[in-house]
């Protein structure tokens, strides 16, 4: 963006006071103060709940009722308690990691190949498939969950990682394939043609040329898939039936139930869960804007 700033000539300079012409995007002092005031307020609203939980996690088990005392006596006992639970937090953490990683690998792989086919090839079933991706977004968990339970138990996949990974793929893959198709559309088709001329098969072109170029888009879908699996509640609650298979989302519900409220354990677990999610998030966040709009703009 090149904007030429008009230098004040001698004539205008003598006819003072003339407001210096401002570059678009520059603000007066008052506007600048207002800008930062709004941004600071919004940022505070965004991060306060997270910081508060972090702060509370350093109290002892009953500190949530008297938050003021934590400052004078910070302890790590919540973390120690949570990490020592047998069939508790460490198991759930491992389960969630396995599930989220598995879903990400499987989901991104099949979404990318479908997205590529949808972007580059015209084939019978192209239109209906795009439509079905949009429509699957609408399927409420309520109509699918009971039949899905029956099907998975017929396949002996209830209370297994594979069953939940496949279920999570049905949530994330349609959105990812839709988005990746948009992303692949932004990669010039000449690159594919060059690859074909050099003797690569369509799979080879996809794998060796297009996938490396689509890294920002793939990063966003991987992130979306990971967080979908990491945070899913409804299916995990019904499909994982024994505590050794609970995910974090299921396990956390056992801390704060109808009859007890282990807020201390809850806050420590929340902090650790969020740290994993935030680490994944900030790894990809600089790709988020480009990856998301390339896909979402197409419809």
């Amino acid at each position: 963006m090149s904007l030429t700033v008009v230098e004040p000539t001698a004539a205008t300079a003598t006819a003072a006071p003339v407001a210096r012409r401002r570059r678009r995007g520059d603000r007066s002092r008052a506007a600048s103060i207002a800008y930062h005031a709004v941004m600071i307020t919004a940022s505070a609203a965004a991060i306060f709940p997270v910081l508060w939980i972090l702060y509370m996690s350093f109290g002892d088990a009953d500190a949530w009722a008297n938050p003021g005392e934590i400052l004078s006596n910070p302890v790590l006992s919540n973390y120690a308690n949570v990490l020592r639970q047998p069939d508790g937090f460490p198991t759930w953490l491992a389960n969630s990691l396995i599930l989220a990683a598995g879903t990400t690998v499987v989901g991104v792989l099949i979404a990318a190949s479908a997205g590529y086919a949808l972007s580059r090839m015209r084939f019978p079933g192209h239109g209906p498939l795009m439509w079905s991706f949009l429509i699957t977004q609408m399927f409420p968990v309520a109509i699918l969950i009971v039949p899905l339970y029956n099907i998975l138990s017929a396949l002996h996949l209830i209370n297994t990682y594979a069953g939940l990974v496949l279920t999570y793929c049905t949530i994330s893959v349609p959105f990812c394939a839709w988005m990746l198709r948009g992303y692949f559309d932004t990669i010039p088709a000449e690159i594919d043609e060059a690859g074909r001329l050099d003797g690569l098969s369509p799979f080879g072109t996809f794998w060796r040329l297009v996938v490396p170029l689509a890294k920002p888009g793939l990063a966003v879908t991987a992130f979306y898939t990971f967080l979908t699996a990491w945070g899913e509640v409804a299916y995990a609650t019904q499909f994982m039936t024994t505590p050794d298979k609970y995910t974090l989302a299921v396990g956390l519900q056992t801390y704060v139930g109808q009859f007890k409220a282990e807020w201390g354990a809850m806050t420590a677990a929340s902090v650790m869960i969020s740290m994993v999610a935030a680490a994944v998030f900030f790894l990809v966040q600089r790709h988020l804007v480009s990856g998301l709009t390339a896909g979402a703009g197409k419809s």
Binding site: A46, I47, P49, V50, L227, W230, G231, V233, L248, A249, L252, S270, I273, S274, A277, A278, F281, F282, Q285
Partner: peptide, 9 residues
């Protein structure tokens, strides 16, 4: 940040 934290948390 609120997007980075899982909804259930």
């Amino acid at each position: 940040l609120p997007w980075a934290v899982p909804a259930f948390v």
